[in-house]
Amino acid sequence: MSARVLVIEDNAVNRELITYLLRAFGYEVSSETNGACGFANAICGSYDLVLSDILMPDMDGFEFARRFKAAPEVANTPLIAVTALAMTGDREKILQAGFDGYISKPIDPQAFAGQISTFLQDRG
């Protein structure tokens, strides 16, 4: 059975890119456009991996991570940030906020599938 991935991303084009790449590599993908909808979907959707943008309207990735990490339903689901926040220090700030991994935008499409499968394996 293919792994299930939830993508939370407000930018339509970037959402399409990530979903397209993941589907091309055989993942089953759902997507949401902000943290609030993403959270509602994440806790009842039994996903193997959640990818989230950081800067989003309504509920941003930091608030999403705070709630996600407090929810027992998803205690074993890795949460990865995929974000254009890529200045010095952003990575550390994002990992401190509770994310289990960090991928900066622009993503490297050739390397993306490999990064995702590594995060899924690390889940143990």
Binding site: V13, L21, A24, A84, M87, P106, P109
Partner: peptide, 25 residues
């Protein structure tokens, strides 16, 4: 920080979809 974020966002689409085409997906 804003400039960095705003310039990277469209580049993500450009590099990303060029990549999917080059990967012949």
């Amino acid at each position: 920080a804003g400039i960095s974020h705003e310039l990277r966002t469209p580049l993500n689409a450009i590099i990303g979809f060029t990549g999917t085409l080059l990967m012949k997906l």
